[in-house]
Amino acid sequence: MEHKVYDIILSGLGGQGILFLSKILAEAAMREGYLVRGAETHGMAQRGGSVIGHLRIGDVSSSLIRQNCADCLLSLDEIEAYRNINYLKPEGVLCVNTPKEDFPIRQVKEFLEKKKIRAYGFDCLSLAIKEGMAQSTNIGLIGFSLGLGFLPIPYNQVVSVIQDLSKGPSKEKNLKILEEAYREGKRIQGDSN
């Protein structure tokens, strides 16, 4: 990792599985030998409202990421992505679960371009529903991000974490969602190169 610290903001709505998403990434980063700090949202805010999580990979003291400093923003919801857009640093990466073809919206495009922020959208929900696992949209978003290749965590490490953390029949389905989303990310990345 070139940076001293790699900062990830996670956003979405309560109940979409941000805590689990954060746990998978944190665990994978730890297994890669990184120090990890995170800040989570529990309690009242979990009931369907806007939720944000911070994940810091590297040697730092505080668990909170400053605005304008996040290397990437992973969002399970498009609106929540815009709400937290100021966390992204110049040349950061925005990665969002959205069914929309014309993501991102017109109003933010100029800002993103000026700040050289790359934005990627993928319909992780539909992919998860296809496997009968709507609650695994978060796994799809991880796979997609890994495919795009900006996270400091290798794909295989995440596979092994999901193998250990998922239980029962959902394990195979989760791995399938992860792989398909990963391929999609790789495909998009290949196109843009």
Binding site: G49, N68, I79, Y82, R83, N86, K89, V108, K115
Partner: peptide, 18 residues
Amino acid sequence: EATFPVQELNLPVRKPRL
């Protein structure tokens, strides 16, 4: 660093719900 005026997007307030 310049910030984006998020309030101008009039994003819906997502309050917690039952």
